[in-house]
């Protein structure tokens, strides 16, 4: 009998050979020089998120695709996450980091509901606003980049501020933040942003914009993105945040597509004439 209690219940070395502890973490007998590893690149990714402010609220949209490199891997991934009744966060970039942030937001929401017990559901004054949420998320992103362990996302945070005015701002993996009447991440910064800016060149114009036009502009941008962004798909989520709360639709299909322009394209790949 083996009198060493540590060995009881384990495969016998003389029968099976020594246990290979190579892959175990250090405190379980793994190799001592095992380095801590951080995300060096995103793996499963979401593409653009776009948003626009209008007179009394904000419209935000992102498609439901999560890509594995160039492979369209998951086709039913919701990248718009509502937070209480005043804010929606749109996630671009790494999907696992998005899911981490989503869990973080859930615990923040629980904490908020606990500590200020908002008994009156109509009273939105004490609710955490989109602006508060943006500041918090920006701090999380900046802290992680400073630890060289970034969350590989670009976020759009939109909703209402404490005075119930429309709010739209962004935070990315470096902790950079900015706000504008229209914002777009990823490929959207190239393809959608010019269209959004044409509709809303400045703050003044966004205060005059009505909800229907805002939604229409965003839907049009989603279509253009699908035409030109190879990592996009034709099903998307769209959310409107205003004083009535968050109105989120997660199964929107692109309508009235026209690919008539496609055979006019020249100059890529082998097609030279």
């Amino acid at each position: 009998m083996n009198h060493n209690p540590q060995a009881w219940g384990r495969p016998r070395d003389d029968v099976y050979g020594a246990y290979n502890s190579q892959y175990l973490p250090q405190h379980h007998g793994g190799p001592s020089a095992h380095p801590t590893t951080h995300t060096q690149s995103p793996i499963v990714t979401g593409t653009s998120v776009i948003a626009i402010k209008y007179s009394t609220g904000v419209v935000i949209a992102a498609d439901n695709l999560a890509s594995y490199g160039s492979l369209a891997r998951f086709t039913d991934v919701k990248r718009l996450k509502p937070f209480n009744r005043k804010a929606v966060v749109g996630f671009g970039g790494d999907v696992s980091d998005m899911q981490y942030l989503d869990r973080l937001l859930s615990s923040l929401d629980v904490q908020e509901n606990y500590s200020h017990n908002n008994d009156d559901p109509e009273d939105t004054k004490a609710l955490m606003s989109a602006k508060n949420l943006h500041t918090y998320l920006a701090k999380v992103m900046y802290k992680r980049r400073s630890d060289f362990n970034p969350l590989w996302n670009s976020l759009l945070i939109c909703g209402l501020d404490e005075k119930n005015k429309p709010f739209l701002a962004t935070a990315d993996l470096l902790g950079t933040t900015y706000s504008a009447p229209t914002l777009a991440t990823g490929f959207g910064a190239h393809l959608a942003q010019p269209l959004l800016r044409k509709a809303v060149p400045d703050e003044e114009a966004s205060q005059k914009l009505d909800k229907e036009t805002a939604v229409e502009v965003v839907r049009e941008c989603m279509k253009v993105l699908f035409y030109r962004d190879a990592r996009s798909m034709n099903e998307y989520s769209i959310a409107v945040v205003d004083e009535k709360g968050v109105e989120l639709k997660e199964k929107e299909k692109l309508e009235n597509q026209s690919w008539a322009f496609a055979d006019q394209i020249r100059g890529y790949g082998t097609q030279t004439v």
Binding site: S115, H116, A126, M128, N132, T135, Y136, E162
Partner: peptide, 15 residues
Amino acid sequence: RLTYDRPIFLSEITS
């Protein structure tokens, strides 16, 4: 103010 950009609730600071 720094992490949330909001004045702390009095109930919060008191507890």
